[in-house]
Design a protein around this nucleic acid. Structure first.
Lengths: 335, 335
DNA sequence: AGCGGCTTTGCATACGCATGCAACGACGCT
DNA sequence: AGCGTCGTTGCATGCGTATGCAAAGCCGCT
């Protein structure tokens, strides 16, 4: 059967089918002019040789690779994998190939990462926070269409989409106050993150509007461990908070564990805990986390539409979407 | 600065530097013959034009793309993202670009997925269970070097690496029996999965050798939900098991939640629960899961070595590695 | 001075495919 | 019958780079 050292090329197929190489190419090109007879002869020959067009060679002439650079940071939390999963599946279903570009730990794009761009990706999707603003500017200078997720930016040729963080934070503040909580604490994520800046300041502002002081503030880094650590600190003092809003679900899980296991608190009776993102794990019975749903599916769908639009017209005006999040009430908070 | 419609090519650089295109090419090729003077002139010109070699065009002539196809199933559990993370980071650090190939839900590789292979990947890494054995055979027929993770296969040109599942299962059986458990149950994963077949049969065999009957058996699909569901069933009867070995950590988490939250059992006093994989979450205080460590870091490192070796010599004899796992004792089992 | 050997360089070509252009044939129309 | 039209086809070329080959230059040696 197989085992051939060299893959069949369009020339091989052409020879077998008794046509020119152009004819073969046209059979694999949408909307090209080929007679039914020629097409069937070519396809039969292609089948016998297990021929598939060489995407590399094709890209060279069409100047379109169909590759989309996907810039990601670590997949260490529960949220990133879900986003990545949804995004790559969506890209694949639209016939685009995701080429992974790793944001390096130092929050910059190093040479290794940039090397991916040498593959002439048609566009780059950056998932937020995975790279610094400086790195984003570097990407913009490349002249490749850029789609930003999780960071609102307004610049030529850059589309961005980002959950309406301020709205999410307001929803939490209003619900907590309305439910009668009086000692409300906030546990923020990585201070340099765009999402943290929006969530933190909106939460403070909303509480202030409601005339409610902020009882305590912790600073984490969006990790489970930091949530655990900061919760221990925030909840240890004399005037223990009766509610804790965490900048993301991972930290909320850490806080929940700290409260229940380490401190022996009853959640939600003695302490309400609210997260942000609504990762799948939030619905697990152990956690049953009340949280803000970051509408990933909707975001990815919109992102893909934005991508197609941008590819169709590189000069289209930049777009910014802010899809609204939603409060999901579960068992970790009295709301 | 930039904004040029067209990227600079080697010809542009050559013109600016006053040399031939070949000279430019040689400056960017390891081990090519170029004088120091020419090199510096070319590099300076390249810098001024922001020139970077076009990897697509380069691949066309070198017949090497430096792309590695990575076949993955869903990233829905806690294990897969960690594996993916480690693998892609390792690939990147060795200067190889991971091109994602999605295994489709029906456990086969559809056209969309195969399209990725049209990019002339230098090799394909398949993470186990993400595709059916039939799909694996299809990939082998392609004549591309194939690396299998999580499934032991012996075939020409196919290297594989897979945690020593039977050893892991034996470790659990021995530890449980030695600790005095007498009603031991097993909760298996997807029956078609290679890992499940190895873990399940080795666990049975080990218990039999120790003269211990298997108290009950559940059949899950490696998901948290199935673990939760099956645990409820297994633990509801009159002769409740005193130990439960789950085919992976995700199911163990589900079982743990079911036992504690739904059934009110004290773990590990009334029931020992053991998982398999040792995902990062297993160490969280809420779970503190006793489990078998699937040595992912070591596996990926070895996998990458196997890859380099295979790329260097496509005709090298196939290799099969079975790195040993390790029992990690935490709080969910009396061992 | 002459010669061999080495380094450096440019020329030409190939990689596999897409596509503009012209040629060709079939067909319908007047 | 003659003409125009349209659908189909092949030819030739280009995409951006790597590389074999030969020419050129340089050096040291005899």
């Amino acid at each position: 059967m197989a085992g051939e050292r060299r893959r069949a090329t369009a020339v091989d197929v052409a020879r077998l089918a008794g046509v020119s190489q152009s004819a073969v190419s046209r059979c694999f090109t949408e909307g090209a002019s080929v007679s039914a007879e020629t097409r069937s002869r070519v396809l039969e020959a292609a089948r016998r040789l297990s021929y598939r067009p060489n995407a590399i060679a094709r890209s060279l002439t069409t100047r379109r690779t169909n590759l989309i650079g996907v810039v990601m940071g670590d997949l260490d939390g529960p949220f990133q994998p879900y986003l990545f999963e949804t995004l790559t599946r969506g890209l694949a279903s639209r016939g685009r190939q995701p080429l992974l570009v790793r944001g390096d730990p130092a929050d910059a794009l190093d040479g290794t990462a940039m090397a991916a761009l040498d593959y002439q990706v048609d566009a780059v999707v950056v998932t937020a926070g995975s790279v610094s603003p400086a790195a984003v500017r570097g990407l913009m200078a490349l002249g490749v269409p850029l789609l930003l997720y999780g960071r609102a930016v307004e610049a030529d040729g850059v589309d961005s989409i980002c959950c309406d963080n301020p709205l999410g934070a307001r929803l939490v503040a209003q619900a907590l106050v309305a439910a009668g909580h009086r000692r409300i604490a906030y546990l923020g994520g990585r201070p340099t993150a765009f999402s943290e800046q929006e969530r933190g300041s909106a939460f403070r502002a909303a509480l202030a509007e409601l005339g409610m002081p902020l009882a305590a503030v912790g600073e984490g880094d969006y990790s489970y461990d930091s949530g655990h650590r900061e919760a221990l600190r925030l909840l240890a003092g004399p005037d223990r908070p009766d509610a804790l809003f965490c900048g993301n679900d991972a930290m909320a899980f850490g806080a929940l564990d700290a409260a229940r296991t380490a401190l022996g608190l009853r959640v939600p009776d003695e302490l309400s805990i609210v997260g942000f993102d609504d990762v799948p794990m939030a619905g697990w019975p152990s956690f049953s986390l009340t949280t803000i749903r970051n509408p990933v599916d909707e975001i990815v769908a919109t992102l893909l539409d934005m991508l197609e639009r941008r590819l169709a017209d590189p000069d289209a005006p930049p777009v910014l979407h802010r899809p609204p999040p939603l409060l999901v009430r579960r068992g970790s908070a009295c709301l």
